[in-house]
Design a binder for these strands. Structure first.
Lengths: 124, 124
DNA sequence: CAGTCATGTAATTACATGATTACATATGGG
DNA sequence: CCCATATGTAATCATGTAATTACATGACTG
């Protein structure tokens, strides 16, 4: 599993409101079980379990069996990772705020003359 | 369109390696056209256009027609938004690093006694 | 104004996602 | 042991995603 695949699964896990809400609940109530967690949502327990599987696959949630309940915990390490390795690069790239296309166009023009050369070929 | 929907579309846009690579290219070569951009990728120009539509829908890319070419620019504002309003909350929540489930379990236990009470009901 | 270059639209296809209901297992208490 | 509780598995279904090929539009250029 490459780092790119990790990012894909992390972003994919975050790209659903229910999963983000699950993370909110887990932040407030670490150790909550699957059933009790499901009560917070409109969808079925099975749907919540599927979301949990996605979150666990991305490393954002970890769990631990304790008797017949499975205790759920938030893990923020993957978020730290994308924050540090990816988002900061983009967020910091344009020091000033990009408010509209005109600014973008001007910024582009400045860098454009030496950036325009690339491998040519037929476009499908 | 709610802020939640915005986040969903932003995270969804980021949840594909090709789209992230498009953003990398646009960071380095702002103002590039669709066809020239497509040369950087293995898939067809149409596939790249579909990805661009997703990125534009999330506000991560803006474009401007200039004659017969459509110039593409990266817009980092949405990334700033998720960075500031969402990721920092989670990244900062556990001040220390969460290395494994044991730490999570201990941290949970400390907060657990007063957090365990919630609305009860039948779980489907 | 004919041709070519850049982009856009339509139709199609394979597969993934998100949800459901019904059934299965497994644990703890009386 | 019996039973309620907590979680897990299987089968199914509608919709969405990511890609393709073929065709259409629209703008420079000689």
């Amino acid at each position: 599993m490459t780092a790119e695949d990790d990012m894909t699964s992390i972003f994919h896990a975050l790209a659903h409101e229910t999963r983000r809400r699950i993370m909110d609940v887990l932040k407030l109530r670490p150790g909550i079980g699957v059933g009790e967690l499901s009560l917070e949502f409109e969808v079925t327990r099975i749907a919540v379990m599927n979301h949990l599987a996605v979150l666990e696959g991305a490393g954002l949630v970890v769990s631990q069996k304790e008797g017949r309940t499975r205790r759920l915990y938030l893990n923020t390490a993957p978020i730290q990772m994308i924050n540090d390795r990816w988002l900061d690069d983009f967020a910091g790239h344009w020091a000033r705020k990009l408010t509209g296309i005109k600014y973008a166009a001007e910024a582009a023009h400045a860098q454009n003359t030496q950036a325009g050369k690339s491998k040519k070929g037929k476009v499908r």
